[in-house]
Amino acid sequence: MSQRSERVPLPCPSCSPEEGTVHEVLKPGGQTTVRCTECGHVHKEKIEAPEEVTVDVVVSQDGDSDKATLTAVADEEIEAGDEFVVETAEAIQQVRVTDLELGPERRTESAEMREVETVWSRVVDNVGVNVTIHPKEGDGRHEQSRSIKAFLPGDYEFTVGETCEFGDDSFEVDSIQLRDEVADDYRHKKLDHVGDTGFAKDIKRVFGRDTTTSAWSAW
């Protein structure tokens, strides 16, 4: 969420008494001292602080949930997919909005902050990505596919056609299934063309083909 800027639009009595220009806040207070960035004129103005609200935030990470609060300007828009930083009892974390609760059984994906009772979110700076690894093709064995979870920074990139190595696991990425709230930010919800890339924080599951050189084991 945005914080109040140290620059504000105001009429300038020297160069623009009718139209607002960008002013730098020099000294905040009841009578705020500002300087016009167009002509340098310094004057005092009464600037009303915007109404603020504080709402509850539920922070989810790998099946666990924690609580925090968020203070924001009352008429600021918030929607699913927005990211911001919150402080929980455990850590300071980057989270992404997944859902907004306006009241009992009232959910939406977009609203003004004044309407929101609870922001539902998930951690995106460090995430666990589910990976399904299919066995090698044409090796004469009949192993089953298996799943692992890779814990990674949210901005880690998976690319279709590239090989990934996590511990003893090595696989070539076949396709990437994206989360619903970010599907519009990509070409398709499922990425399956060589070169398609997705961030770990946006991914629901990665599908890959085993590339380990040793005997593949379902365990």
Rank of each mutant, 00 (worst) to 15 (best):
G103F: 13
E76H: 10
K67Q: 09
E172N: 10
R114S: 15
T118Y: 12
G161H: 01
P50A: 13
C39N: 09
S16F: 11
L26N: 05
D75V: 00
D180P: 04
E165D: 04
H142C: 06
A72V: 15
P50N: 09
T88A: 05
P9E: 13
S5L: 10
E19W: 14
T69V: 10
E51F: 11
H188I: 01
F199L: 14
V182K: 03
T54L: 05
T54K: 13
E18R: 06
D180H: 11
E45I: 02
V194T: 15
C12S: 04
V59N: 03
L178F: 15
I133G: 05
R187S: 07
E109C: 02
E105V: 03
V34A: 09
E87R: 14
T108D: 08
V194H: 09
E79V: 06
K136Y: 08
R146E: 03
E52L: 10
V8H: 08
Q61M: 11
E181R: 05
A74M: 09
P135F: 07
I148G: 08
W219S: 03
V129Y: 02
T163K: 08
V173T: 08
E162P: 01
D155R: 07
S145W: 02
E76A: 15
I203H: 07
C36I: 05
D75C: 03
S121I: 01
A215K: 12
V129Q: 05
R179Y: 14
D75W: 00
E157I: 07
D66Q: 12
A49Y: 02
V58S: 10
D155L: 03
T197N: 01
H142P: 04
K44G: 12
H41W: 15
A68P: 04
V85W: 14
A150H: 05
E83I: 08
F151Q: 06
P13Q: 04
P13S: 06
K67D: 02
Q31V: 10
A218F: 03
E105F: 13
I176R: 02
V97Y: 07
V34Y: 15
G195F: 00
E24I: 05
S170N: 01
E83T: 15
K190L: 09
F158C: 06
D66N: 06
R114L: 11
G20T: 15
E181L: 09
F158H: 09
D139Y: 01
S5K: 08
T163S: 06
K136C: 07
L70W: 12
G20I: 13
V116A: 04
E115R: 10
D184A: 12
T118Q: 03
V55M: 13
I148W: 07
V194K: 13
D82M: 11
D82G: 00
A200Q: 02
S60L: 09
V59G: 06
V53N: 03
I133W: 09
E117D: 13
Y156M: 06
V123Q: 12
F151H: 12
I78H: 04
